[in-house]
């Protein structure tokens, strides 16, 4: 630890991280701001950001918010009971189960989404099995439902892990004390467990909501390119239309949403600290 006491050395040691942050975070961010707030001639304008108000773009943004809120809610409903179950288990079995939930993440997320496409297709695997069993087929491919399914499937682990972490860190003695003092099951849960797991819930929500809000791959593959999310529109500005100014301008709008989310998270964190 002597090494880090020396100011010079610690500066040297941190330089790779500073370089990393500058090259991969600050420079791209600055470029998005530059492109988003200028026009083709290079002069300052709010035009690109303001175009979010156009019906097509606004609709895509609202739909993105709607779908990602629904996905986040579903993820939470699925993840919280699971987190409770996992954290109440004996140590060895719960690490095994947690690994099971992380396991799919070892495979590339595009491949997994592509697999869902083949599974859900009209004559895909699921429907073939259903037809074989003389059951009615499901037709959710290329609908918002398929996109929500894709989001929930892909982002569920990001909800489970923080919630599970928060829950398993709760000191058993606190719960025992509550019981001792006469709190019932429900009261213990509502007044002790839920508030103590709040930081986990909030970071889970952030980690699901933001990638769901900005995704374009899931909606392209499972929505058949029929349902445009704001992520698709931004992607198309960069790859197809070649209008970086508009693409960046719309990205700035998204960044505002992400900032709002982070502010809420910070506020909640502070409140959590005063408990």
């Amino acid at each position: 630890m002597k090494l880090f006491k020396d100011k010079k050395t610690s500066g040297l040691m941190s330089s790779p991280y500073i370089a990393w942050a500058v090259i991969f975070i600050l420079v791209p961010l600055g470029m998005v701001l530059y492109y988003g707030l200028t026009d083709n001639a290079g002069s300052f304008t709010f035009q690109n950001v303001a175009r979010i108000a156009e019906p097509g773009y606004m609709k895509a943004l609202l739909r993105s918010i709607e779908l990602s809120l629904i996905s986040t809610l579903i993820c939470f409903i699925l993840a919280y009971p699971l987190g409770l179950i996992l954290s109440s288990m004996k140590l060895q079995r719960d690490t095994f189960l947690v690994t099971l939930f992380i396991l799919p993440m070892w495979m590339n997320f595009l491949l997994r989404t592509l697999t869902w496409m083949t599974l859900l297709e009209g004559k895909g695997v699921i429907n073939t099995v259903l037809t074989f069993l003389h059951l009615p087929t499901i037709n959710i491919i290329n609908t918002p439902g398929a996109i929500i399914l894709g989001m929930v499937y892909n982002f569920l682990p990001f909800m489970i892990l923080p919630i599970y972490n928060a829950l398993s860190r709760i000191d058993e003695n606190v719960i025992n004390a509550a019981r001792d003092l006469g709190a019932g099951q429900l009261q213990t849960f509502l007044r002790i467990i839920l508030p103590l797991s709040l930081p986990g819930i909030i970071s889970g929500i952030t980690m699901v909501f933001i990638p769901a809000l900005t995704t374009f791959a899931i909606s392209t593959m499972l929505g058949g390119s029929k349902i445009l999310l704001i992520g698709n529109i931004i992607e198309q500005q960069f790859t197809q239309v070649y209008d970086w100014h508009l693409g960046s301008g719309l990205s700035i709008v998204l960044m505002i949403f992400i900032l709002i989310n982070m502010i809420i998270e910070n506020l909640a964190d502070k409140e959590g600290g005063t408990f």
């Binding site: 097509g56 609709k59 895509a60 445009l228 529109i233 198309q236 197809q240 239309v241 209008d243």
Partner: peptide, 14 residues
Amino acid sequence: DKLYADEWMKVKSA
């Protein structure tokens, strides 16, 4: 190009 791109966006976001 721009005209077509804008119109296409209308189709895709409808």
